[in-house]
Design a binder for these strands. Structure first.
Length: 311
DNA sequence: AATCAGTACAACCGCCACAAG
DNA sequence: TCTTGTGGCGGTTGTACTGAT
């Protein structure tokens, strides 16, 4: 369903500036654009807009096509796997949305940007810290991401990847089969069959512990894009296995006592005294007990979080 | 039922890089 | 070298939707 299509094209909500239309696209405009691109291909958006009979700017046409009409778009909720990848890639590259989107087939930079702003930044706000602060990065790296890995693992163990807050908005493209070899959309199959399709992640060096989270160097990764049969396996191979995050996650996985480990991590005394553990700085200064577990964190996340705090 | 606040997402804007003339 | 057109990107805004009160 597209809310834009529910409007009358002649409604006064739409602004007509000279010959150019603005505002939500109508079904007729979408059809014009889709048909024209199908017949003539993408590019030359300004002339395309004129030739197709669209009273839109080339920019508007391009955006509409890339963010909404492209046939290979993956629609529906961001899965835990995708969330994990977004968090990891953002920790490396910052707000390089298009770059991040390149590693999430079928997702647009706009979608990822919206996800970040509406959900991730929301939690930074709740934690009363800046989303770019080291504290928040630590929370993501040592609390949020491991939890996502755990959820992916659990979903894998249950026989099928967990749908994150699956709702009516989900389409077949976002179904768990998309992550299974032989299932899902064309792009995923391409990536799974050809790991080199993500060259930056396939570049492999193993300098354990040396990679900077924000580094653009892209060191040490063996992407597989396989189904999340084991969440930690999927993550550590998809992302940089030499990064501190992945190393910690992998260690937790190998111990098969991940929950206990993270419970320890949450104890102030532990992370203040153990040189083995990552320096979490002043994470404990957060009002972490009031962390809102809605939207991103599910109810069982809340339970886990409470247990982890030893409450 | 009405109102309100929060959420999700489509769309626009301004800036920048690049290529062609 | 300068100008212009084009495409790409990140930031921001507007609004429909949803759930709580």
């Amino acid at each position: 369903m597209d809310m834009a299509h529910e409007r009358d094209a002649s409604s006064e909500e739409e602004v007509v500036a000279g010959e150019l239309r603005r505002g939500p696209w109508t079904v007729e405009e979408d059809l014009l654009l889709v048909n024209y691109v199908a017949a003539h291909g993408e590019g030359r958006w300004n002339s395309l807009a004129r030739s197709a009979g669209l009273r839109r700017t080339g920019k508007s046409c391009r955006l509409r096509w890339l963010n909404y009409l492209r046939p290979d778009l993956r629609r529906g909720n961001i899965t835990p796997q995708e969330q994990l990848l977004i968090l990891e890639l953002h920790s490396r590259w910052g707000n390089r949305w298009s770059k991040i989107a390149q590693h999430l087939p079928g997702r647009t930079d706009n979608e990822i940007k919206n996800y970040w702003r509406t959900r991730v930044q929301k939690h930074a706000k709740q934690l009363k810290c800046d989303v770019n602060s080291q504290q928040f990065k630590d929370v993501m790296r040592y609390l949020w991401m491991p939890r996502l890995v755990e959820r992916i693992q659990n979903a894998g163990a249950a026989g099928a990847p967990q749908q994150h807050k699956a709702g009516a908005a989900d389409t077949p493209l976002s179904s768990p089969s998309s992550w299974q070899p032989g299932g899902g959309d064309h792009h995923h199959q391409l990536l799974m069959n050809n790991p080199a399709a993500v060259p930056e992640l396939s570049a492999s060096t193993t300098t354990a512990g040396s990679a900077s989270p924000s580094s653009d160097s892209g060191a040490g990764a063996q992407p597989c894009w396989l189904a999340p049969v084991g969440g930690a396996e999927w993550f550590t191979t998809t992302c940089d296995a030499s990064s501190s995050t992945a190393a910690v996650l992998l260690a937790g996985h190998q111990q098969q006592q991940q929950q206990q480990q993270w419970s320890c991590l949450l104890g102030e005394a532990t992370w203040a005294s153990s040189s083995e553990l990552p320096d979490l700085g002043c994470v404990a200064d957060f009002e972490i007990g009031s962390f809102d577990v809605e939207s991103i964190w599910s109810t069982d996340d809340s339970l886990w979080f409470t247990q982890a705090q030893g409450v």
